[in-house]
Amino acid sequence: MNPGLLFDAVLVTVLLWVAWAALASRDLFRGIVLFIAFGLVLSMGWVRLGAPDVALAEAAIGAGIAGALLLATWARLPGKTEERPGDDLEGQERDHEQR
């Protein structure tokens, strides 16, 4: 099998999986970290599509600065305990029980 095609197939699979994991995350912090990972994988996708300019912008801005802004916003969300407004604690508990 063509190694380039194999790499692309793995890349697309990982991209879709990370995107879903970031969206479906019950924990807001985890979601943000997955979003940053998504940006880095996506920039590899742009390299594979022959668009290194877009890949650079995606890695620097999409993953780097946007991730930093999201984390800064997350750190400023109200809530003294571990719980933060975006977290779905009931959902986390339900996930925990199912395991």
């Binding site: 290194p52 801005i61 780097g64 600065i65 930093a68």
Partner: peptide, 25 residues
């Protein structure tokens, strides 16, 4: 490098600025 490379290779002001901003962060 990114700023200088932008005229002939992938690079440019936005990427260069983002790298500098990362140092600021």
């Amino acid at each position: 490098y990114l700023l200088w490379a932008g005229s002939s290779r992938p690079g440019g002001a936005f990427q260069a600025g983002a790298v500098l901003a990362a140092a600021g962060v």
